[in-house]
Nucleic acid binder design. Structure first.
Lengths: 148, 148
DNA sequence: CTACAGTCTACAGCCACTATAGAGGCAAGA
DNA sequence: TCTTGCCTCTATAGTGGCTGTAGACTGTAG
């Protein structure tokens, strides 16, 4: 016997991903077109839960959509060499480390900034002074931190 | 004698901010409307360089536009108490620290992931296994890292 | 005068969604 | 059977912080 298929709402609850997000994933090709009921409602099987949980975990780890698409493609060829998947993950790790370093520099600078506030007036405010005077800045914050 | 005003291109070079970005800052109310030449070109004084460098530094430190707008408003009242500026900076520091913690968790998980890759086939790939099996995940990566 | 660089406005695109509108579908209770 | 109320559908616009493009005009050097 076959298992009863889920509507998108049930899938949403089962996978912990919002309905709109599932439809969005479909629209960008991460999810593939599901079967439809006579009235046009999407119908999913258990594999959809699995797929969504894969996507969600990868997103939680910060993988960009393109990388996830590549990983999903790789999954469909289980005998292919693992090196590609490894490379994608290593790239992601490198990106995360880079952002980590930038954020650490930001934290140091901000910490220094608020530490110097003595509660006086704006005119003498060291927070303002620091923002005005880039030369005063200790941290090498020249590259803007990218979106995650 | 007054100093010769700059066109937007000169301002761009002087402040290290792209022409389009300057116009964008104007459109969202961070820059204020400049004087114009007879033919309609924007004309700026030295204060614009100062203002842009303030904005840029704040952006480099990750302050969102709204916060920067607030800080600029504060600047126009130099005798106002410094507490508001301090609060904005502290909020930003807190945000940065939160993201830092999330990123550290990501880094740990990714490191663990790539360390287990033995170069075999996708079928046995530990990178894939980790992504498939959220239960295997050591890190508490339940909250998605926000854009910076 | 002729190039060519600079400037103008207005609008589309980026990422990864989220929110909204307006219409139709489905199951349970009266 | 009808109603109530949630579910689902499509299509579109908005988020943040810009960047890129198109097509027209302006300013300047040779």
């Amino acid at each position: 016997m076959t298992v009863k298929p889920m509507t998108i709402g049930r899938l949403s609850k089962a996978a912990g991903v919002k309905v709109t997000t599932i439809r969005y994933y479909e629209s960008v090709g991460l999810m593939g077109e599901p079967a439809r009921s006579d009235s046009g409602q999407r119908l999913y099987g258990e594999d959809a839960v699995q797929r969504l949980s894969f996507i969600r975990h990868a997103r939680d780890l910060g993988f960009p959509m393109d990388a996830i698409r590549d990983l999903i493609d790789l999954q469909t060829r289980p005998d292919h060499n693992c090196a590609s998947a490894d490379a994608i993950a290593r790239q992601q790790l490198e990106d995360v480390r880079k952002r980590l370093n930038q954020l650490k520099a930001l934290e140091a600078e901000l910490k220094r900034m608020v530490a110097r506030c003595d509660g006086g007036s704006i005119g003498q405010c060291q927070v303002m002074a620091t923002l005005n005077d880039h030369g005063e800045c200790m941290a090498d914050v020249h590259e803007r931190v990218k979106a995650f």
